[in-house]
Design a protein around this nucleic acid. Structure first.
Lengths: 339, 339
DNA sequence: AATCTGAACGCAAACGCTTGCGCAACCGGG
DNA sequence: CCCGGTTGCGCAAGCGTTTGCGTTCAGATT
């Protein structure tokens, strides 16, 4: 039916062992024989069965990537970049989309990934039990989101510093009532919302602005969440004159809420986001840019390096650069709306 | 080391064959024995090695998904939805991200997918050779993008009709100089740009508007492409008073270009898109909505159905409903800017 | 009581590869 | 000319399942 290693062996007049060694560049085969075998394999259109070779050899040449929600821009972009690195290195990518709690539970209890992958890139933060389950796979682990666990290599950004630069910008413009839209209520165990909030608090304290808990609104890291949160803030007796949204998607939701309330941005309210979503430039959103694709790339590289040389100790956490991007959704507070 | 089927067998005092049959619900095992085995397996945390079972059984319980660019909203969303269906049915997803020509070529010549998947969902249109390569895998094939090949099941939308409703809307508003932003220069072999263009032409003809080729601008299905194309149109001696962008991303690029030119939307220029991107509501873009996630779901279901019953003939192409969504980027032409 | 019939289960042969080990043949050095 | 050391290759034993077929045994049929 389909051409197997013995077909190549017979065609060349050698044993299957030799074919195996030749095709994978292992020693013990003369150069002359190697070229003959490679030629024959190409001729027959032979590709080794991954199932068979991973069963026999242990290596699967497959990387598992675990994602909370592929459709979301951030994860899609990271995945895209990581996949390119993996496939260029000859690895396949097994994708697990663990958005729903059921899917997540199913995954971590059945662990279908077991014995199927050589490494795992997790774009979600596993809780301690889940992290333990992943470690039990006994393969290199990496993540690109804040809140890594022991045993995970991590590449990320300075969330706190980023938040600081965003909020400081608002303070410098003269804002005093600065709201924050967060998503802390969403998936647990990740430190991003916490770090970004800390940056917000730090700058307020530094500027001598008293922190008003009413100015913090949660909504989940989505457009809808941002819209809900902004709506809450607008319902306040003294609404903020500026808001820091912990993600661009939430910032866009905030923009929508503001438009619904017939408020102008930035004349009436300033908005600053975080992430530099691909469409942020379109809406002119001031934000803090992080290199999303680069993080996926880097994480993938770390994993591959670890696979190449398992003895090398785990690398230090990698911190990628961020930068503040001034666009058009921020301005000094409008005196007529000041309290 | 890791628990295998024989461990379960010994723990239960039966043979490995019986364990295999019991766990997969095959006949030949008493109900009583089955529950004992299932219990033991759960206790030991046993999961069958996919490599071994696919080697022995032929089935891989894996679906290959081929995507041009995971990071793009449309594909990410389709993938997300499809993955959920697959994983709920016990299938894993192998992802191939074929954005670059090199990746694409590598994939189709080496065909690493061979013997690794039970079915393939392609979100890109293979050229005839590539399609033949996929057919040679001898597994069910499906796609969600226009321009399917023989041997592929297809779920899609009425691109032409959608374009018609978008352009008709502009005509009804009173526009006569209606531009179109297209991406025909991008990946070949897919009929979407062609169909949408045809819808555009149909409506113009129907309304007795002479078609001016200068009003068609190409730019690739991206924000940047849309921006470039819009910029071109604005450089015309008689720029259009309204434009139909073949995708929302291009429409957003157009919006950006218009903002850069200090033109107001919709007062100066009307814009209508296609797709209903998740952020289109945020920018208030009038567009034609297509059920993106639902298409991924449906395609996945078709594949699973085909796997369950290989003898069932291939289903008819599925056409999903679309609907026009009126938002805020369209209005009657501004008399002061009429030519 | 002898025979037949299923149901329930075990045996062993694949599935297609990898890899430790063994065995020639050949090399140059003493 | 003998011998230790390479080099190049084949043998065969796995890797963990699935599955066709054979066996056993209890109960039904004559």
């Amino acid at each position: 039916m389909t051409v197997s290693i013995t077909d190549v062996a017979e065609a060349t007049g050698v044993s299957a062992s030799t074919v195996s060694r030749a095709l994978r560049g292992r020693p013990g085969v003369s150069e002359e024989m190697r070229v003959r075998i490679v030629a024959a394999a190409a001729e027959l259109g032979y590709t080794a069965s991954r199932s068979a070779s991973s069963l026999a050899g242990g290596r699967t040449y497959t990387i598992g990537v675990v994602v909370p929600y592929v459709g979301r821009w951030f994860f899609g972009t990271v995945l895209d970049a990581a996949e390119k690195v993996f496939s260029a290195a000859g690895y396949d990518v097994l994708l697990y989309n663990l958005g729903s709690p059921e899917a997540r539970k199913r995954f971590f209890t059945k662990l279908p990934i077991r014995k199927r992958v050589d490494a795992v890139l997790s774009l979600l933060i596993p809780d301690p039990e889940e992290a333990a389950a992943l470690r039990s796979l006994d393969v290199p682990l990496a993540t690109t989101v804040g809140g890594a666990r022991p045993g995970f290599m991590v590449v990320g950004i300075d969330d706190r510093g980023g938040a600081e630069s965003a909020v400081r910008h608002l303070v410098n413009l003269g804002h005093r009532r600065i709201g924050m839209i967060s998503g802390a209520s969403e998936p647990l165990h990740w430190t991003t919302p916490i770090d970004r909030r800390q940056g917000y608090l730090d700058v307020l304290a530094d500027a001598g602005i008293e922190h008003d808990p009413a100015l913090e609104a949660d909504g989940g890291y989505t457009v809808e969440g941002g819209e809900r949160a902004m709506t809450e803030l607008l319902a306040l007796r003294h609404p903020p004159t500026a808001v820091f949204a912990q993600s661009d998607e939430m910032a866009m939701g905030a923009l929508r809420a503001l438009r619904r309330h017939r408020l102008r941005v930035p004349e009436d309210v300033s908005v600053v986001g975080f992430d530099d979503h691909e469409l942020s430039e379109v809406v002119g959103l001031t934000t803090v840019a992080q290199p999303v694709a680069a993080q996926g790339q880097e994480a993938a590289r770390l994993l591959l390096a670890q696979l190449d040389d398992p003895d090398a100790g785990p690398p230090h956490p990698v911190e990628m650069p961020i930068r503040f991007i001034l666009r058009e959704t921020t301005a000094p507070p409008n005196p007529r709306r000041q309290r």
